[in-house]
Each structure stands twice: as C-alpha cells, then as structure tokens.
C-alpha cells in the first residue's frame, strides 16, 4: 500500500550535527592541551588539591577546563542522543530522552563550573 512520506527541514537537527563537528575539533585542541599539560610534561608529578589550585591560578588553564567541560558534555551527550535516535524510533521516547539529556547536560555544566569557581576563588 502506498503511503505519503512528509519531509520538512529541521534547523535543530542541522545545528546539533554541526556543533557535534565543531565541538570535536575543539575537543582535539583542548584535550591535547589538557593531556600534555597534566600528564606529558611531567608524568611522574602527583596531582593533588594544592597543585590543582596553583595550576588554576593561571587563566589559560581555567579557560581550557571550562571549554573542555562544555565541549565534552555537548559532544558526549549529543552522541548519546544519536545512539538513542538509532535504537528508539518512537518520536515520544526520543523527545523525552533528548529533554533528559539536555537537562543533565546543563545541570552538570553548572555543577562543573561551580567546582571550578571554588577551586579558583577559594584556593
């Protein structure tokens, strides 16, 4: 039996796909910095609270961390959304899980930013 397929442009789908790519490029840069600075330059250095606080007195590290947090959360949770879209074709389920992921992402970002602010300001 013939059925009509309706097709409409979705700006949101485009931006999510596009920022998945943008955040991945961002992650390559920031993550490389993160791993080189923390583990490569001196692999034998022990990381503790004091050294972390001292490191975070440098604005470059703060910015790197906040971007790492944002990019990683977006890239990771949007990736989870892509997986959900593959395995749950029901529009209702997709919408609910997408909303949950959005809320989780924003909440964790705020939490991470608070921890970072605490380490920077009260260090």
């Amino acid at each position: 039996m013939q059925q009509t397929v309706h097709l409409k442009a979705s700006r949101r789908s485009f931006w999510l796909w596009f920022f998945q790519r943008v955040s991945s490029v961002g992650l390559i840069v920031v993550l490389l910095f993160h791993m080189i600075a923390l583990h490569y330059i001196d692999p034998s250095a022990e990381i503790d609270l004091l050294s972390t606080k001292i490191r975070l007195q440098n604005l470059v590290f703060v910015l790197a961390d906040i971007f790492l947090l944002g990019f990683a959360l977006f890239h990771g949770l949007n990736g989870v959304r892509n997986v959900v879209y593959d395995y749950w074709p029901k529009p209702g389920t997709r919408k609910i899980i997408s909303s949950i992921l959005l809320v989780v992402g924003i909440a964790v970002f705020i939490w991470g930013a608070l921890v970072l602010a605490y380490l920077v300001l009260l260090g």
Binding site: L7, K8, A9, S10, S13, F14, N82, D86
Partner: peptide
C-alpha cells in the same frame, strides 16, 4: 530538495 533532507529522516542520520 535540500530542505527535504535536512532533518532526522534525511542526511543527519547517516553515520
């Protein structure tokens, strides 16, 4: 044509 495929039924679902 591009509007028709810029959605979750179209190009963005390709992995």
């Amino acid at each position: 044509r591009l509007s028709m495929v810029s959605n979750e039924k179209g190009v963005w679902r390709c992995h």
